[in-house]
Design a protein around this nucleic acid. Sequence first.
DNA 1: TTGAAAGCGCTAACAT
DNA 2: ATGTTAGCGCTTTCAA
Lengths: 328, 328
Amino acid sequence: MKDVAARAGVGLKTVSRVVNGEPGVTPDTERRVQEAIEFLGFRRNDSARVLRKGRTASVGLVLEDLADPFYGPLSRAVEEVARAHGALLINGSSAEDPDREQELALALCARRVDGLIVIPAGYDHRYLEPEIRAGVATVFVDRPAGRIDADTVLSDNFGGAREGVAHLIAHGHRRIGFVGDHPRIHTAVERLRGYRAALEDAGLDVDERWVALGSTSPDRVRSAVETMLDAPEPVTAVFAGNNRVTVTAVRVLAERDRRTALVGFDDIELADLLGITVIAQDSAALGRTAAERLFRRLDGVNEEPESVTLKTTLIPRGSGELPPAANI
Amino acid sequence: MKDVAARAGVGLKTVSRVVNGEPGVTPDTERRVQEAIEFLGFRRNDSARVLRKGRTASVGLVLEDLADPFYGPLSRAVEEVARAHGALLINGSSAEDPDREQELALALCARRVDGLIVIPAGYDHRYLEPEIRAGVATVFVDRPAGRIDADTVLSDNFGGAREGVAHLIAHGHRRIGFVGDHPRIHTAVERLRGYRAALEDAGLDVDERWVALGSTSPDRVRSAVETMLDAPEPVTAVFAGNNRVTVTAVRVLAERDRRTALVGFDDIELADLLGITVIAQDSAALGRTAAERLFRRLDGVNEEPESVTLKTTLIPRGSGELPPAANI
DNA sequence: TTGAAAGCGCTAACAT
DNA sequence: ATGTTAGCGCTTTCAA
């Protein structure tokens, strides 16, 4: 910038004005400055600008895994909102590791992102308190914040699961398996709660052998489902706790002769062709809502932290409408 | 940092040393500094650090759409490599718009990212020349750079498509449709080239009514496929030019009584269950390779720009092995 | 081992 | 309309 000023024979501030399109420069001077910029291939160094202005026009998003089809649309939605506000988005994947989540979130804070959207991997976010106090707007998505009070955007995991399981019950099922994510994950617990509530609503008992929480790795899900199917009194329907469970469950059920009903939480591509009934959540809406809330905060709105819950949608496609198979 | 120094009763530089784990500080002093840091909730401002050091420890990734399942794993792979090098990743989606690609790439350069990975939307990347000259390492992925010489990592689009079409020919097909992306997109053109080459290898002529390039929107793909199926001499097989085309093609074909063979470029989740034969490319490997190349450059390796091509894999699952249906 | 001073490139505030 | 000065928070250099 100094060089540009020298070459154009003007002061530093004049160049700054031109670069930022500020008023108070004669067209002639502006032209000279533009020429110098062109000639020197100058481009403003935003690092310096940030240092001076205190705002980075960037927001951070800490999620679990960008490669998961659930998070792609979410991230993209956040990006669109950020873009509308002239901000860039820095993503990071925690890989479901609380330490890595913290490391990432703090690294983003050290970069002085203006705001932070976090899909928690951990259960204690007090480490963010100093940052929030220092002015980093923070919104939690998909899972609630741990031990601090903050804006949160969730899906109705409880209600969605309850509706899905009720749907199976309405189609005559009495022995329904639940295969879900690890119990340390909030959504898994909520969905299990919904499962239990639906059974209870119908006056049915839960046999704990029908419930399997744990890793969503194909191996674990496969063995969980197979155990339920091979029991003396096999389940006649399975409720899959998330997209990865559904994918494996569909594979396992497809191998069997006996038709077992299935409802999965989260929609999946091609689920329509496979006739998989799902409880869909709108991950893009989750991201958009969170980002809008974040920027509202950045624009100075100062309300109490608030929790928003987005509705889920039951999409019947066949697998959830199968009647119980005559067993054994 | 000033405040920390004051509170600990030491010089600014000593605090800097402690924060960065540099040697030359007595344990006692270090302890006092640490206490002050703790007390004040100090965290280093990386913006200032960046300004001074000239390196941001961040890389930019400009892709088409983070919500596309093809790019999620690619982005994640880049992130992992970046993480291993202590760098953060800033993603941006160009939405297949050349202007937006440029705007994004230049915004990232203004932030002084150390390196840039670009999945081109445009065909002229000379706008990046000053940046590259100024030291921003740049690697192009998935599609080649336009009008500049730069590192590039591609999939073998030509070879993959040729293999897929040859596979259909080997199963007896003579009238094979090609539905692909817009002809301004490099991969679409390459794959079409592969299609033509396979037909030519077999001594078959191409009827241009079997070729449909254009938008990958469901509507356009649907009508393209339906036209081919409803022609007086309908195609007996369809080669789908990418994941989105495949998804719609599968839907359209599933509505028909006559079984039409299908091979798709790109693997899709649940394609195994639907028995869809595909030419799979490894999007994570694409991202990893590009990122490794980028960091090699950042580590000072100074070779000529190089183009790497990654092999694709034919995965037979049924749809590509159907014989031609007796038509009409 | 420790610290003072200079400066990275920019913008805010205040001249002129 | 234009320029000058100070300073954002850190690291580098060099001296103590």
